[in-house]
Structure formats: structure tokens, C-alpha cells
Design a protein around this nucleic acid. Structure first.
Lengths: 326, 326
DNA sequence: TTGAAAGCGCTAACAT
DNA sequence: ATGTTAGCGCTTTCAA
């Protein structure tokens, strides 16, 4: 393991100054073709790789993009991250993935670490929508909020209200007593999907019944517990709309424990379910373009990193009803 | 967004030298308690946070640990990563997650980026077991291989042979024609699980039939295609042992397309399946302690980072049969 | 025990 | 067009 060659080694071997080498490597200014060649050759010969810490120290920006999401095990987020990753990597950035587990404390800790690392930018699906860019002193680091909004920064979100209306309305076609299990209402996805649910009810003249609404935490076990609560009601719901995929799976488990024929209760999920969990396609779900969401967010972030200074923009992406319960 | 305070700002405010501040912050040497207090106060007042790039440049090590895995969407790996993350974060390191998508080219690209970042250490589940630490010049960066082995570095793996024997033997209790869909044989998990499968067969005096073995790529679609191939055989298998969870789900989908009664073919998976995919618990699987695997790997890595120099160690973790087909 | 000063490897003025 | 040089913010000798 020979000591790693540095810029000055390349310069010496090529018989030029370090500045010239730096120029060649960053293809900024024009350098005489002959020198370019010599530098490139020396670089190859020494197997030179630049030290990104040194570069980052100098340029005050590390070629790293941070991604902060609440749950790496949720396919919605893994797809979304893939969307970010693909675009960001093409542009020479490394992606740092941080998992907040839906807890504010972890989120804060990660944000500090990322700022310490001088990351070039940040994509975040914040634990609480009330979080503000200024509040943790992002020190001029561009931020894009994805899936969940945040004040003062670019955002890419789903049209949660419309999506929830679509899903709930579908359930209402064959049921009257429709319950909902939402994510935390401090998240925009949680509260907006609840709004959609309520609007769908009122559209068909049904009153909102508090007992048919349970706030959970987007986890499988949360959905499971919430569903059990709904199933224990005097008058059982005929259908349950779950705010995400994990809670729908939890609800499914609870239902199959309580009912002999689980199909008696119609189920819906804002996010799609894996085929194996619902081979019959009975569960009403939305097609959510998570990969695209990630790409859009990455796109906006790259623009900011490159210096775009305009006011905060926001993109709302539509979903569409995916499966039809028969 | 005030400019970020730096070490010299803290030093000035505290009326000491930068060296003293540095000492206080790294609690290395002994500094007079009074000075310590002054420094800490100044630090708090300015909201000082160190610049890890500058520190890394100086100490030639970034407080970042890289984790390179083939598939972030696989629950086995996400749990494993959680095991690494928890331990590593407790020790002040940031975790960089890289997804190789089971392709050698991406893996190589990420490894270079990580080396450029001067990461303190690396945990990797390599795409090919033939990869060697030296081959990509890890420049003295500690490496631990997890799940899949690699030459010359610490490794933490599952006992793939025994696990595969256990699963296959269970299938053989009620079937004679047992097929297998393995992962890529260039991975140790792929080849070792195949070895276990063959050994279980020979243990009960059944010859290995090449047509009952298909090599796939650990993906859902790979398992799906492989299963279709097996189902198209003149003489269909009575059971299929899949090398991982995704392929088992794919196989399940294929089976349900071809057979009216999917339960005619017994299914097994090396990795456990989500409850929703197999509510009846019919699929034979192993409990794989992925979180623990991650913790062990992180443990070894931290030891190496702290300077442990001994020869490469290897830990083999046992699995156990999880569900019983009834 | 504390401070002064020399770099870590790179980029970006400023000269030439 | 190329080279010289001064830092980026930190840690770590070396002196005091």
C-alpha cells in the first residue's frame, strides 16, 4: 500500500506547477493541450486520486449530498432515494443516507453531522412539518424538502388531498362506514391525507365520526394496533383507509386475526402494496411515483447547489388510483 | 445565517490559543480546569461546531464509515445496516450508505468515492467474492466484509451451508423433487447455499439433478423467471428452495400464475418473508439475525479503526429454522 | 500547562 | 497560458 500520490507529485512528474494540474483536473481554464496530456499521463501513472477533504476545505463544499428520511425500510422511501441517487451520482456527488426513524432527536443529530461534513446540499422528508430551515442553522446549505413540506425551501410533494379523496371515494362506493388510520398529524402527509378523507366523506354527505379516525405512526405495528382499536368498536367499520403501506400491512394482520373472512372489511392504502401481500389486488391503492419524486427533488437541489437563487419553489406530483377492488 | 464560527473565534473569545481549544475539544491533554471552562463557554456562546473536513485533512481520517451493500430494498440488508448504524453512530461516526445494485461497476465507483472521502472504515457485502482488499487499493482503510466473504479482511457471515441444509432437509420431509433457485454463484451466499442444498440431497440419497437448479440474481423478477423455468419442466418440482426473500416472492408469483392451487408446491426461502406475503406461515424459512450481523461487523470495524492490527478474523453466525410447514 | 507555528492537500488570486 | 503563493480550519510538534 504505497502512500497515496498527491497533486504535487503529479505536478512534479509532469513538470508543471500544481496550479496547472488543478486546472487540468477541474477543466476550468484553458491549458495548453500538450500540458494537459502530460498531466493526464502523470496522473494515470501515479494512480492519482484527489483528496476530497482538502478540496472541500478549500472550496467550502464537499461533493456529498445528504438524504434524511424517516424510514429506510419503506419501499416508498427506498425508491425515492434511488431517484435521488441516480441523478446525484451522475453529477459526481456521493449520497449520504440518514434514517431518522420518525424521531425528531435523531433527525436533529443527523442534520448537525451533515452540516459538520459541509455537505453540498440536503434532501429531507422532515419528521415534523413545523421544522424550519433556519431553526437548525443550515448555514447556507441548499435544502429541498421531499414528500413532506417545510417552510422556506423548495419542496416536492404528492397531492395528498386529491389522492386521499380518490381512495376514500372508491371505498365509499361499496361501504358507508369508512375508517382511516393516518400517520402522525405533525407530518404534512398525515394531516393532508386526513383532510382528503374528510372531504370525500362530506362530498357524499357523510359526517366525520371521530371514533373512525386513529392517528398512528406509519409503522406496521402502529397500523396493527390502530386496526385492532377500530375492530373493537361497537359498530365495526366496513372499510379502512391506511395512510401508508406499512400500516396497511399491520391492519391486514389485525383484520385476519379478528375476522374469519378478512374480505368482509375493505382495505385501502395510500401507498401500493407488494404483490405478495395482496395477490388478488383487492386492496385499493394509489400509484405513487416515488422514483420521480426523488428525481425532481434531486434536480431542484442540483440547481440550488449550482447557485440558483430564486424564491422557494414547490412541485406537486399527482397520484392515480391503481387497483380496483372487485 | 451568520458565518459559522471557527476554532480561532472560540480561542479569541476565550482568550486562549487555538491549540488549547483544540485540546479541550479533543479532551486529549490536561488543560487547566479554568481554561476548560472558559473554552466551553465560548464554544457554547458562538455555537461552534468543528469543521470535519479540516479535521479530516489534518488527521487523514474522516469520521465517516462507508457501507456498501447490493440492495437497499432487501429487508435483510436494511436490518443489517441498522445494526451497523446504531453502533457506529454511538461512536460518533456518520454512516454513508451505498447501493451497488449487485453490479461490480457501481461497486467499484462507490469504493473509489469512499476512498476519496477518506472514510475511517468500510463495511461491504461484495458483489463478487473474488474481490480483494488490495485490488482497489483501499489505502490502509480498515474493511470488514459482511454476509459475503472477501480475502484478507475480517468477515462476519452466516452459516450458509448449515442453513441451506436445514431448509432443504425440511422440504425433503414431504417432497422428493426439490428444486433450488440460487443467487449469483460468484457470491459466497449463492455458492454456499447451493452446497448446502446438494449436501441435504445426498444425505438422503437423492442425486443432484442439474435441471432442478437455476442461478438467478437475488431479485424478485429473477426469482419469477427462474420459477417459471422450473415450472415448465416436463416433470415439475414438488418444492422450491429460494436463496433469498425477493426470489421467493418472485417464485410465489410465478407459481400462483401457473397453478390453480399454489400450495401444491412447497416453497422455502433462506431469508424470512414479511407476514403479509405468507400469512399462513407455509413457507419454510430461517431466522437470520441480520441486525446482529451488522452489529458484529461494526464492532470489528471499530476495533480496526482504533488500531487493532491482528490477522483477519472471521465470525460465522448460525441461523435457525423458523416456520414449520404444516 | 500553554502558545507559536508549521503544515495536511488543495484551489484561487495574483503575478508573470 | 502558466507559475507563485497564500490560505481553507484544524491538529500537533516544538518551545517556552
Amino acid at each position: 500500500m504505497a502512500a497515496r500520490a498527491k497533486l504535487s507529485d503529479v505536478a512534479r512528474l509532469a513538470g508543471v506547477s500544481t496550479a496547472t494540474v488543478s486546472r487540468v483536473l477541474n477543466d476550468n481554464d484553458r491549458v495548453a493541450p500538450e500540458l494537459v496530456e502530460r498531466v493526464l499521463k502523470a496522473k494515470a501513472e501515479l494512480g492519482y486520486r484527489y483528496n476530497s477533504l482538502a478540496r472541500g476545505l478549500r472550496t467550502r463544499a464537499n461533493a456529498v449530498v445528504g438524504v434524511v428520511i424517516p424510514d429506510v425500510t419503506n419501499p416508498f422511501f427506498t425508491d425515492l432515494v434511488r431517484g435521488i441517487e441516480d441523478l446525484v451520482r451522475e453529477n459526481g456527488y456521493l449520497l449520504v443516507l440518514c434514517n431518522t426513524d420518525e424521531t425528531a432527536a435523531k433527525e436533529e443529530a443527523y442534520l448537525e453531522l451533515l452540516v459538520d461534513q459541509q455537505v453540498a446540499g440536503l434532501v429531507i422528508a422532515p419528521v415534523r412539518s413545523t421544522i424550519e430551515a433556519a431553526s437548525f442553522d443550515l448555514a447556507g446549505i441548499p435544502v429541498v424538502a421531499v414528500d413532506r413540506t417545510m417552510n422556506g425551501v423548495d419542496t416536492v410533494t404528492l397531492d395528498n388531498v386529491r389522492g386521499a379523496i380518490a381512495v376514500t371515494s372508491r371505498l365509499l362506493e361499496s361501504a358507508r362506514r369508512v375508517a382511516t388510520i393516518t400517520g402522525p398529524l405533525v407530518t404534512t402527509t398525515g394531516s393532508e391525507r386526513l383532510v382528503g378523507y374528510r372531504r370525500a366523506l362530506s362530498d357524499v354527505g357523510i359526517d366525520f365520526e371521530p371514533e373512525l379516525f386513529v392517528e398512528a405512526d406509519y409503522s406496521e405495528s402502529g397500523g396493527y394496533a390502530a386496526a385492532h382499536r377500530l375492530l373493537a368498536l361497537e359498530e365495526r367499520p366496513e372499510a379502512i383507509f391506511c395512510g401508508n403501506h406499512a400500516m396497511a400491512l399491520g391492519a391486514m394482520r389485525a383484520i385476519s386475526e379478528v375476522l374469519d373472512d378478512p374480505s368482509e372489511i375493505a382495505l385501502a392504502s395510500f401507498e401500493p402494496l407488494p404483490w405478495a401481500a395482496d395477490p388478488g389486488g383487492r386492496v385499493v391503492t394509489l400509484a405513487v411515483p416515488s422514483y420521480e419524486l426523488g428525481q425532481r427533488a434531486a434536480q431542484m437541489l442540483l440547481e440550488r447547489i449550482r447557485g440558483f437563487e430564486g424564491p422557494a419553489r414547490s412541485i406537486v406530483v399527482q397520484t392515480e388510483l391503481l387497483r380496483t377492488p372487485r
